[in-house]
Amino acid sequence: MRSIARGLGLGSAAMALTALTALAWPGTAGAAPTGTESLYAPSALVLGVTAGQDAGSGTVLRAVTLACSPTPGGTHPNPVAACAELRANGSRLDALAAPAADAVCTREWNPMTVTADGVWQGRRLNYTYTFANPCGFRNTTGVLFDF
């Protein structure tokens, strides 16, 4: 099978020059990102609240999307604050899901589970936290799961 470059009559030096020109010329597809674009890996999550102890078999009550890179966005009601919390805590989300220390809740067992699934700073993230009851969920300290 004949290569396209040879079929067009281009030698190896001409091919190299063409490739370099395409990458270096302003406005081409290979140009470096500008403006609000970022060289960092994207961060995007799907956050969910499920009635039940197991997110896989429970009833999904709510779900939102959260994108933090290059700019905060998604269907989360407060993406700027949620992304700031994620940046401050990294992938250690227990601090954001745990109920406040001064929360007063009954001891009933009516579990609710929150999940975060997606990519955080270029790495796969799969997080699950189960509250004993809706009271614990309503008294979380962060805004990440406040939707």
Rank of each mutant, 00 (worst) to 15 (best):
32 A>S: 11
113 T>H: 14
55 A>M: 06
110 N>G: 06
16 A>N: 11
103 A>G: 03
110 N>R: 15
139 N>Q: 11
92 R>I: 00
16 A>Q: 13
102 D>L: 08
109 W>D: 12
118 G>K: 08
94 D>S: 11
35 G>S: 12
86 L>R: 07
101 A>H: 07
137 F>T: 01
9 G>A: 08
45 L>A: 06
20 L>S: 12
73 G>L: 07
79 P>A: 08
37 E>S: 13
95 A>C: 09
22 A>W: 09
2 R>E: 15
66 L>C: 10
64 V>D: 15
145 F>V: 01
22 A>E: 09
131 F>T: 02
10 L>I: 00
3 S>Q: 10
57 S>D: 12
32 A>H: 06
51 A>W: 02
4 I>M: 14
27 G>E: 02
87 R>V: 00
99 P>I: 00
120 W>M: 13
121 Q>I: 00
24 A>P: 03
95 A>L: 14
17 L>R: 14
117 D>N: 12
97 A>R: 05
57 S>I: 10
56 G>Y: 05
110 N>E: 13
81 A>H: 01
22 A>S: 11
91 S>H: 06
99 P>D: 10
75 T>P: 02
145 F>Q: 04
10 L>F: 15
19 A>G: 10
83 C>H: 02
21 T>N: 14
120 W>G: 09
96 L>Y: 12
135 C>R: 04
80 V>A: 13
133 N>W: 04
123 R>M: 12
131 F>P: 04
133 N>L: 03
125 L>M: 10
109 W>N: 13
137 F>E: 01
133 N>C: 05
81 A>G: 03
101 A>Q: 12
21 T>H: 13
25 W>R: 12
35 G>C: 10
128 T>S: 15
23 L>E: 07
136 G>I: 02
60 V>C: 09
98 A>F: 00
57 S>A: 15
82 A>L: 02
121 Q>W: 02
33 P>G: 07
60 V>F: 05
82 A>N: 00
41 A>Q: 05
129 Y>V: 00
143 V>N: 07
70 P>T: 08
124 R>Y: 07
142 G>H: 02
70 P>F: 09
19 A>I: 09
76 H>E: 05
92 R>H: 10
134 P>K: 01
51 A>C: 03
39 L>Q: 06
117 D>V: 09
111 P>C: 12
63 A>Y: 10
71 T>N: 05
100 A>N: 03
28 T>C: 08
49 V>N: 00
144 L>G: 05
82 A>Q: 01
18 T>F: 15
98 A>S: 13
145 F>T: 03
140 T>C: 02
120 W>F: 15
12 S>Y: 11
69 S>Q: 13
16 A>P: 00
136 G>Q: 07
38 S>V: 02
88 A>P: 03
39 L>D: 11
119 V>S: 14
115 T>S: 15
92 R>K: 08
63 A>C: 05
124 R>W: 03
137 F>Q: 03
11 G>D: 15
52 G>N: 05
79 P>R: 04
57 S>K: 14
42 P>H: 04
26 P>A: 08
24 A>Q: 13
54 D>A: 07
58 G>D: 14
2 R>G: 15
11 G>L: 11
133 N>A: 07
65 T>N: 11
99 P>Y: 03
106 T>Q: 10
81 A>R: 04
57 S>G: 11
